[in-house]
Simulated assay, not measured.
Amino acid sequence: MSDSALTLAEEIVLLALDDETGRPVGRGGMAPDRALAGALLMQLALAGRLDTDRDRLILVDPTPLGDAALDTALARLAAPGAPGDARGAIPLLAREAPAARAAILDRLVARGILRRVEDRVLWILPDRRHPKAPGRPEVREARARLRALLLEGEIPAPHDALLLGLARAAGLLPLIFTAAELEAVQPWLGVVTRIESLNRSLAEAVADVRGVGLGTARRD
Rank of each mutant, 00 (worst) to 15 (best):
L164W: 03
L122K: 13
L105R: 11
A103S: 14
A103F: 04
A39N: 02
R145F: 11
R107Q: 13
L92W: 08
L93G: 06
R95H: 11
A103I: 03
A100V: 05
L77W: 06
E118P: 05
T63L: 07
A99K: 10
R116G: 11
T52E: 13
K132R: 12
P158G: 00
L77M: 03
P64K: 05
L41K: 01
G84N: 08
L162F: 02
L105T: 05
R76Q: 12
A86Y: 04
L59D: 04
V117A: 10
A144W: 14
G48F: 09
P32F: 02
L70A: 13
E141D: 13
E152K: 00
L50Y: 10
A133L: 07
R49F: 11
A102D: 15
R143M: 13
L70E: 08
L59F: 06
R143V: 15
L40P: 00
D71W: 09
R120V: 11
V109W: 04
P83H: 09
A103K: 08
R140S: 11
P158V: 00
L74P: 01
R107I: 06
A47V: 01
A148F: 13
P134A: 12
A144T: 14
V139S: 14
H130P: 06
R115Q: 13
A69P: 10
L50H: 10
L146E: 05
G29W: 02
A161Y: 00
P32S: 02
L40C: 04
L59E: 05
V117Y: 03
D160Q: 07
L150D: 01
R115M: 12
A169F: 00
A157F: 04
L105C: 08
D160A: 06
D71I: 04
A97R: 00
D119N: 14
D119V: 01
A31T: 15
R136D: 06
G135V: 07
L163C: 02
T63S: 12
L46T: 05
A133D: 07
V139W: 10
H159Y: 15
A97H: 02
L50F: 11
A37W: 01
P32N: 04
P32Y: 01
P131N: 03
L40K: 04
R168S: 12
A82V: 04
L50C: 09
A82W: 05
L74K: 07
E118R: 13
H130N: 08
L50V: 09
P134V: 08
A75S: 14
R168T: 11
P158T: 00
I58F: 07
L92R: 09
